[in-house]
């Protein structure tokens, strides 16, 4: 199985999936090119789910505890999302 890695020069590199998530030198220009990871879409889905969860919890906190609750939930959620995006 192979993975496609687009270089900034526009060249499409087809590389073995053992290189997924890693780096390969572009066959056309030689520049180091990032190869998409096989599980990248799972991490993207996880981040989206966390963002949706953040919005829902903030809305729930607003109905349950008013503006202060919503503010606490919003700030806490934003921090959690920031850490998550840094980790992945």
């Amino acid at each position: 199985m192979s993975v496609e890695a687009f270089c900034e020069c526009g060249h499409l590199n087809e590389v073995p999936d053992t290189l997924a998530g890693g780096i390969v030198n572009c066959a056309a220009c030689g520049r180091a090119t990032q190869v998409p990871g096989l599980r990248d879409h799972y991490w993207t889905a996880l981040k989206l789910a966390a963002a949706v969860g953040w919005a829902l919890v903030t809305a729930w906190a607003y109905t349950a505890a008013g503006l202060p609750g919503a503010l606490i939930a919003a700030v806490g959620g934003a921090l959690a999302l920031f850490v998550l995006s840094r980790m992945l």
Binding site: T18, G22, V24, N25, G30, A32
Partner: peptide, 26 residues
């Protein structure tokens, strides 16, 4: 030096010369 995967038992790490912007190995 960048890891290829988040969780990998036999982890591979690519090494890139930052000045040349070329992968030199792993």
């Amino acid at each position: 030096v960048l890891a290829r995967q988040v969780i990998d038992f036999s982890a591979a790490y690519d090494m890139v010369d930052s000045a040349e912007q070329r992968k030199i190995g792993a």
